[in-house]
C-alpha cells in the first residue's frame, strides 16, 4: 500500500506538530508514504464562499500531485470533505473520481483502512475532551451526531481508548459547533467568538485538561479563545496522542 500524505496549508504553517505526528505515526504503522514536497491547496475557501468557479486551476494542481496513489491521507477533516464531497470545479474524469474516493482523513484511515488495534508506544494519563469538528462529524461520519437517532459510535474515541491512561470526557453540549466554520470566523467574528467561548467553557466545566481533535482548524480557534480567557486547557491533535506524545 502506498499513500500520499497531504498537509494542508494551515497545518503546515500553524500546526506542523500535527503533521509531524501524523507522518511519524503512519511510518510506525509501516505505511509507505509519499510526500509531494510542493505546497498545494485543496480549494476549500473557494467552495466555502461560493467561488467554485475560480477553483478549477487549484483543483487541477491538486489532482496532478495526488492522483495514482492507493490513498491520500491528511490530518484534516475539512480538506478531506472538500476533496471528497465538493471537488467539482475540475472536470470529473475517472482519474478525478478515483482520487476523490481515495481521499481519507487520518482518523478514518487508521480506524477503517488500517484498523489499528493498538498504539504500544502511546500513553496519555490525562483527562481529555474530544472535539469532533463538524465536518468530520457530519460529513465524514467520524461519530454519530447527537441529533441523529441510532446506535452510538465514535471513531476518534475508539482510537483514543487504545491509549493507556487516558480519561475521556465530553462537554454538556456534546457536539455543538465551536464557531470556527472556516471563513465564518472572519465573516462574523462576534458570533464566532461567542460560540468559541461557550465551547471551551463547556470543555473546562467537564474538567478536561486537554481538548483533542482530528481537526486543527477548530483547535486554532479554540486555542486562541482559551488563551484569551486564561483557561487551564491545552489543545492537542489526536495524532500527537496516538503517536506517543506524553506531555
Amino acid at each position: 500500500m502506498k499513500i500520499a500524505f497531504f498537509v494542508p496549508c494551515y497545518v503546515d504553517a500553524l500546526a506542523p506538530q500535527a503533521a509531524i505526528a501524523s507522518y511519524e505515526l503512519l511510518q510506525k504503522l509501516g505505511v509507505e508514504i509519499d510526500y509531494p514536497d510542493e505546497p498545494v491547496c485543496c480549494g476549500l475557501p473557494f467552495t466555502d464562499m461560493g467561488y467554485d468557479q475560480y477553483a478549477g486551476d487549484i483543483e487541477q494542481t491538486f489532482v496532478d500531485h495526488f492522483s495514482g496513489y492507493d490513498y491520500v491521507v491528511t490530518p484534516s477533516g475539512i480538506c478531506t470533505d472538500q476533496v471528497r464531497n465538493h471537488f467539482t470545479a475540475v472536470e470529473q474524469t475517472p482519474e478525478v473520481q478515483q482520487l476523490r474516493g481515495r481521499m481519507y482523513e487520518l482518523v478514518e484511515f487508521l480506524h477503517d483502512i488500517l484498523q489499528v488495534e493498538e498504539f504500544p508506544w502511546a500513553s496519555f494519563p490525562h483527562k481529555v475532551a474530544i472535539h469532533n469538528a463538524c465536518h468530520s462529524l457530519r460529513y465524514l461520519h467520524h461519530a454519530k451526531p447527537s441529533e441523529l437517532m441510532g446506535p452510538a459510535f465514535s471513531k476518534p474515541e475508539a482510537l483514543l481508548r487504545k491509549v493507556p491512561g487516558i480519561e475521556i470526557v465530553y462537554p454538556e453540549r456534546v457536539d455543538e459547533c465551536c464557531g470556527f466554520g472556516g471563513t465564518f470566523s472572519i465573516w462574523d467574528p462576534d458570533v464566532s467568538a461567542q460560540m468559541g467561548k461557550d465551547k471551551v467553557t463547556g470543555f473546562n466545566n467537564a474538567g478536561a485538561s486537554y481538548v483533542v481533535s482530528a481537526d486543527y482548524s477548530c483547535l486554532l480557534h479554540q486555542g486562541g479563545v482559551i488563551n484569551k480567557l486564561g483557561l487551564p486547557l491545552r489543545t492537542i491533535h489526536i495524532a500527537e496522542i496516538l503517536n506517543g506524545a506524553n506531555a
Binding site: 498537509v7 503546515d12 504553517a13 500553524l14
Partner: peptide, 22 residues
C-alpha cells in the same frame, strides 16, 4: 484584526512541516 478581539494569536511554530520534512 477582528480575530484578536476574542483570540490570542497563536505562537509561530519554529518551522513548517515542509521545513521539518526536508
Amino acid at each position: 484584526n477582528p480575530w484578536a478581539k476574542a483570540h490570542e494569536m497563536p505562537a509561530a511554530p519554529e518551522k513548517t512541516f515542509r521545513q521539518w520534512y526536508r
